[in-house]
Simulated scan of single mutants.
Amino acid sequence: MVELFNFNYVKFRGDFMKAIILSGGNGTRLYPITKAISKQLVPVYDKPMIYYPLSTVMLTGIKDVLIITNPEYVELYRNLLKDGSHIGINIQYAIQTEPRGLADAFIVGERFIDGDKSMLILGDNIFYGQGFGAMLRKAASLEKGAVIFGYYVKDPRPYGVVEFDEQGNVISIEEKPERPKSNYAIPGLYFYDEKVVEFAKSLKPSARGELEITDLNRKYLEIGELKVELFGRGFTWLDMGTYDGLLEAANFVETIQKRQGFYIGCIEEVAFRMGYIDREQLYKLGKEMEKTDYGRYLMDLANGVRE
């Protein structure tokens, strides 16, 4: 059963794509931390984990967002993010009653997607690097097919691995291969055209009983419509699904923010810089948290201190 919570949903004019943040699952690799709370609501340094993928979505220019989570957590997300209007976007919520694989997000979100192009991002991934916004907007402007990303890693065996030609056309995709054909892992960020729901519905469950994102990507590969964009040296991708990953991400965020003075994953700042909210609204959001460094940071932005 899929339940969609509507907040007087209004489609923004000019929208070219919709975004899904997948925040379901049981987070068993983070037990006992996640026994009573959704993994994507766990703090990563100074903000909830969900802020990081949400800020990535906002950088694309997408304003229509669906958060998919477990039934017991949906109200927690709604209490945190409401309908998104305070940061100039539209957030809806849907329930995934049990883990059925990443590709299942498009079946759960079919009514939300409503025949449009869509983006999927995993709720436990952080992306950070110069030029990232431009890369996202390029991927989101796809005419047809699908765009995935490649991130160079020393040992790609624990990941999905992509092999490609000089034009960025994907040759093969393998899931956790013993002998990888490249060193490029596939992070949890995907862009698809209108065929994605149809393709997702045609998938058969894997041996572990899930609809695999790799199988979905192979559908696009089979028709020659799968492209890869590569993250260069100096770009950071972090998966926060383990204790070490969670700690590494928190330390990374702390280091960047304290050294540079600019925040990572700050949804209010992204909303302001993308023109979704004005200085007055930004200041108001900061004022609500003025006893924290986070709130004071927003107030400084609104006052032009950190231009």
Score class of each variant (00 low, 15 high):
94 A>M: 05
137 R>N: 15
121 I>M: 04
284 K>R: 15
130 Q>S: 11
159 Y>E: 00
29 R>S: 14
143 E>F: 04
23 S>A: 15
301 L>K: 05
303 N>G: 07
15 D>T: 10
189 L>V: 14
205 P>T: 06
307 E>Q: 14
180 P>R: 04
25 G>K: 02
37 I>R: 10
117 K>C: 06
188 G>R: 08
122 L>R: 02
52 Y>L: 06
80 L>C: 03
67 I>K: 07
57 V>H: 01
68 I>R: 08
197 V>M: 04
100 R>H: 08
78 R>V: 02
259 R>M: 11
279 R>T: 14
274 M>K: 13
63 K>R: 13
178 E>G: 08
288 E>Y: 03
47 K>I: 02
211 L>I: 02
182 S>F: 00
141 S>H: 02
297 Y>F: 14
281 Q>D: 04
8 N>I: 12
229 E>T: 05
69 T>I: 06
293 D>E: 12
301 L>F: 14
110 E>T: 04
276 Y>R: 06
214 T>I: 12
8 N>A: 14
9 Y>M: 07
292 T>S: 11
148 I>G: 05
205 P>A: 11
148 I>A: 05
305 V>E: 12
148 I>R: 01
135 M>V: 09
246 L>T: 01
233 R>D: 09
232 G>A: 09
33 I>N: 10
127 F>H: 08
37 I>K: 09
84 G>E: 00
81 L>K: 06
218 R>L: 06
16 F>M: 10
104 D>F: 03
299 M>A: 04
244 D>W: 15
241 G>M: 09
297 Y>E: 01
74 V>K: 07
14 G>E: 03
274 M>V: 02
104 D>P: 02
133 G>P: 01
279 R>Q: 15
160 G>S: 10
242 T>Q: 03
172 S>T: 11
287 K>E: 15
282 L>F: 10
108 V>M: 06
107 I>N: 08
220 Y>Q: 05
139 A>L: 01
6 N>G: 11
121 I>W: 02
239 D>Y: 10
237 W>F: 09
21 I>S: 04
225 E>L: 04
188 G>A: 14
92 Q>D: 00
257 Q>A: 12
286 G>T: 11
127 F>R: 06
123 G>F: 08
176 K>M: 08
56 T>D: 03
53 P>G: 07
293 D>V: 15
133 G>D: 09
242 T>C: 05
72 E>Y: 14
197 V>A: 10
26 N>F: 00
101 G>V: 03
299 M>I: 08
147 V>G: 13
33 I>Y: 14
32 P>K: 10
172 S>F: 05
300 D>H: 12
81 L>P: 00
82 K>W: 02
108 V>P: 02
104 D>H: 13
134 A>W: 03
273 R>N: 15
249 A>S: 08
253 V>T: 05
126 I>K: 10
227 K>E: 12
118 S>I: 01
27 G>W: 02
263 Y>K: 07
205 P>W: 11
292 T>N: 05
144 K>Q: 11
83 D>M: 04
172 S>P: 13
142 L>V: 03
